[in-house]
Design a protein around this nucleic acid. Structure first.
Lengths: 258, 258
DNA sequence: AAACATAGTTTCATAATATGAAACACAAAA
DNA sequence: TTTTGTGTTTCATATTATGAAACTATGTTT
């Protein structure tokens, strides 16, 4: 069994591209007319019309009977949600993450490894504080420059971690972002020693995180969670305090999940 | 400009059906092999292989290099999330809903009308109580048998409300579900008098809700929000208390949104 | 080791499908 | 009225997707 290595140079199904491009445009534009769509897609209006009817037929698009404009329905959410419910970690982790939020009053995230990134699969927000962190279930964050990412990288085999680093587009997102592999490795060994990882405004200025990963029964890092808060609430002392709670939660999660 | 009224009897693009069916199977099955997929879809394996490669090309599917199994990536979430960020109500409502949760300690939902249903577009959970309500952003609930639904129906034109009732598949979900149009109308006029709607275990046994709708500047009901809780925490007295907070929140939201 | 079985992958002649120019229908604007 | 700008429908044609069959790699049985 040999599995393809090189990427395809063109989509083997032309309409597929057109279908999804149409959905993507609809997602970002909101209700839009046929001509506009045809223009932005660079396709003949008949073609777009047919594509839209196909999407309507399947329930992913609707047309406003008054304005004749087209827009997406909420059906993609079914797909998206199913993707999450597949994995039972969300349900298992929930109560523990809530407990963590209740204890520390800060927002907690749960992520899953997905290639070079960590995808947010759950989020428990504290409603007692008013600072809004821009994060959403389904969004992703690079592994090399996030707390959860480093928690995960630290527990991977050195080869895997190196491979991810090499494939990642290393960008200096803030002045604190690590852009040197040597430096990262030092941090990772520190993470292994401490059991938790930190994000010191490496991804976004003004935000510090403390994170820990969740390994499966084989010892492979699969998920991670973090507490994020603005720097003014994240002094080094506070981090030492939170670290205790984080390690406790990690222990419980790994025990219950496996 | 005449807009199509009758539904198409078949998909004008055959592959479209196949593409999305493939995604739906992948969503519910999790990682799956080519032969299994080919079997469940009833398609030739070459065809499925091509479809999968197309989806991989676009980034919606990935193949595990070790097991050769196919599964969805998290890319559909980009589409799904964009659908929400289009509408600024979520961001506007957030702080007010959080305040409401902080005040009453129960889970609060925000919904949007979508045809015959109300779709959850946001949710603020209370982490102090441990009862889990099964609801998720992106899921939907029929208008005729939910608190938010009745809050919305009450503010629609009688014709619109009737049309939705007629098109809905009325089912007795619990012993309290309203299945008679006359009865619904009486409830709706009560809702209009009080300014808020109730769901008295009409959708799910053991759960009561109090809800109010948010109208746009034209007076059209667009969104609604609700407080849900198990019956034992939702006595009639408690509801009277919560009603005050709900009406207050409604007022603020309508003022800020328009 | 050899033969077999079972996965995924690739090829290619052919049938089936998507394409888009053009005609059409309707509404609003000139 | 005429014109302009929508969305809709049609249809000959080129293009595209199709799936049977051949192929390859891996694991299993003889």
């Amino acid at each position: 069994m040999e599995h393809k290595l090189e990427a395809l140079e063109k989509n083997p199904i032309q309409v597929a591209d057109r279908l999804f491009q149409t959905m993507e445009v609809l997602a970002s534009s909101g209700p839009i007319g046929l001509m506009d769509l045809s223009g932005t897609l660079g396709l003949n209006k008949s073609t777009v019309h047919r594509i839209l009817n196909s999407l309507i037929y399947m329930g992913y698009v609707k047309q406003n009977p008054e304005t004749a404009k087209y827009s997406l329905t909420f059906k993609i959410w079914d797909l998206a949600n199913q993707l999450l419910t597949q994995n039972d970690i969300v349900d298992i982790a929930r109560p523990h993450l809530k407990e963590l939020v209740a204890k520390c009053g800060e927002t907690v995230h749960l992520v899953q490894v997905d290639g070079l990134k960590a995808v947010y699969i759950d989020k428990v927000e504290s409603y007692t504080n008013s600072v809004r962190l821009v994060s959403k279930v389904g969004k992703s964050i690079p592994l090399y420059c996030s707390g959860v990412g480093k928690a995960l990288l630290a527990e991977m085999s050195p080869a895997d971690a190196k491979a991810i680093w090499d494939k990642s587009e290393i960008q200096k997102l803030t002045e604190h972002t690590i852009t040197d592999y040597q430096a990262l490795q030092e941090r990772l060994s520190q993470v292994r020693k401490q059991g938790y990882a930190l994000d010191d405004e490496e991804n976004e200025l003004g935000v510090r995180c403390i994170a820990a990963c969740i390994k499966d029964y084989k010892g492979k890092p699969k998920y991670a969670f973090s507490i994020s808060a603005p720097v003014n609430r994240m002094s080094d002392e506070r981090i030492s305090e939170l670290a205790v709670a984080v390690l406790e939660t990690q222990k419980k999660l790994e025990a219950e999940w496996n």
